[in-house]
């Protein structure tokens, strides 16, 4: 079992503390992320009103004491919408990240171990992968009615092939490794091999990938809203608030600036955490930094 020790330390070593120590930016990223999550969770108690309440008499008001971030073309309170928007955007980001890594992991593991499944499924994945992801997501959204769930599914489908490919690559590599061969030769069961050797070593790159997917999903959601193929417009996602306000960006820049800053900060935070994770989890890169 000596061979297993070569790779196993990854699992035991605590990665977060060193990552934060080496990259102060990771701490910043985590801090922003926690703040956003708290804001999303506590939205109703942060001085907000109903983010859906329309009121044409107070439409397009500039930020003021009554409306901290102003109001939009329907007279809805942008502050409330931005805070509630955190829920939607994070839901999309995290939802897509979770779903696509889970699915990608499953498909990647199956195709990594089964030649027949590999031949069939990877052809389909190759096909899906050759359609640019945003294009694929738009096409999928055109099929269904606008809802947060459908946005998550559409973006997930366009991300899955990349995760599957990554996992399959790692699995194929690991299968040739002496410690895996040894485990199989020693009569360790398939599931146990999977659990002990394959999964732990696949998780690291997948986790890093998941953070990038989370970040890009939030941006894609905004792009879908911009094109008019995203979440329902009354739902306050950051993308929707911006898409709604884009016609007025010279007259009422706050309609884009507030949600834009929140979106960019969140995506930035996720990316920073992702970079930190990658450096911490990838011993080859970590060595030099």
């Amino acid at each position: 079992m000596a061979a297993a020790e070569l790779v196993a330390p990854l699992r035991r070593r605590h990665w977060l503390a060193p990552a934060v120590r080496r990259h102060p930016t990771v701490a910043v990223g985590l801090l922003i992320l926690v703040a956003m999550l708290a804001m999303a969770a506590l939205a109703p108690w942060l001085g907000t009103s109903d983010p859906l309440a329309v009121s044409p008499i107070r439409r397009l008001r500039f930020p003021a004491a009554a409306y901290w971030f102003g109001t939009d073309a329907y007279g809805r309170d942008v502050y409330s919408r931005t805070l509630y928007g955190a829920r939607v955007s994070l839901q999309v980001g995290l939802g897509v990240a979770l779903l696509s890594t889970a699915l990608g992991l499953a498909i990647g593991l199956v195709t990594g171990f089964n030649r027949f499944a590999d031949a069939v499924i990877m052809r389909v994945m190759d096909g899906l992968m050759s359609v640019p992801p945003v294009l694929l997501a738009i096409a999928l959204m055109a099929l269904t009615r606008a809802s947060i769930g459908n946005v998550i599914i559409a973006i997930t489908i366009s991300e899955v092939p990349r995760v599957a490919r990554l996992v399959r690559g790692v699995v194929l590599g690991l299968r040739e490794q002496p410690f895996v061969e040894a485990a199989v030769a020693a009569g360790t069961g398939f599931l146990r091999t999977l659990q002990r050797h394959i999964l732990p070593n696949t998780l690291a790159p997948v986790l890093v990938q998941a953070t990038y997917i989370c970040a890009s999903a939030m941006i894609t959601e905004a792009v879908l809203s911009f094109i008019g193929a995203g979440t329902p417009p009354q739902i306050p996602s950051w993308g929707n608030i911006m898409a709604d306000g884009r016609s007025y960006f010279q007259l009422r820049p706050y309609l884009i600036i507030f949600p834009g800053v929140f979106l960019s900060l969140t995506v930035l935070a996720v990316n920073l955490v992702g970079d930190g994770l990658r450096d911490a989890l990838d011993p080859r890169l970590a060595r030099r930094l």
Binding site: L52, A53, V54, P56, A73, Y74, A146, G228, P232, P233, Q234
Partner: peptide, 17 residues
Amino acid sequence: TATDQPIVDRQAQIVAE
């Protein structure tokens, strides 16, 4: 309501409420 048609969407949002 149709999000790509402001004239339609404005009516729908107000009346729905």
